[in-house]
Each structure stands twice: as C-alpha cells, then as structure tokens.
C-alpha cells in the first residue's frame, strides 16, 4: 500500500478513514451506507436525479 509511507510519517491523519455518505431510506437518514442491506444498496445505486423546473 502506498499509504504505508504516510502512516509512518509523524503527523498524518485519516489513513483508512472513508467518507461518510448520508442518505435517506424509508423516511429515515442513515449515517453511512455500510449498514444498509444489499437490496437497499442496490436501490440507492440505481437512483437517478429528477430534473427540476418545468416551465
């Protein structure tokens, strides 16, 4: 891993830390998608954006 180098440098922070991605399912928010079940992950992956502004 190339990050090993950073790890050994004295003052680097964040090695192995991912981003939090907060999404809404069934009305609730969920802090990260790690705890989502497989079906919900697939559903979230498939979501497309809706165009706004129709005039």
């Amino acid at each position: 891993m190339t990050e090993m180098r950073n790890h050994n440098e004295e003052k680097a922070i964040g090695e192995g830390v991912g981003f939090e991605r907060i999404r809404r399912i069934t009305g609730y928010l969920v802090g990260t998608t790690d705890r989502w079940n497989n079906a919900k992950r697939a559903e979230e992956h498939d979501r497309v954006k809706h165009t706004i502004g129709r005039q």
């Binding site: 990050e3 950073n6 003052k11 680097a12 964040g14 090695e15 830390v17 991912g18």
Partner: peptide, 25 residues
C-alpha cells in the same frame, strides 16, 4: 470526517484533497 467538509464529495474531498482511506498531514 478528517477535515470536516460537509457537502458533495466525489472521489476526492474538495477541501483537503484526500481520497477515501488516504491521510492528510
């Protein structure tokens, strides 16, 4: 969670420039 940036993050954090799993000095 490393730099506290809140918003949309693609591959790279727009504030600190790291990718997921990378560290920042």
């Amino acid at each position: 969670p490393v730099c506290g940036y809140n918003g949309i993050i693609g591959e790279v954090c727009p504030r600190c420039g790291r990718r997921a799993g990378e560290s920042v000095s």
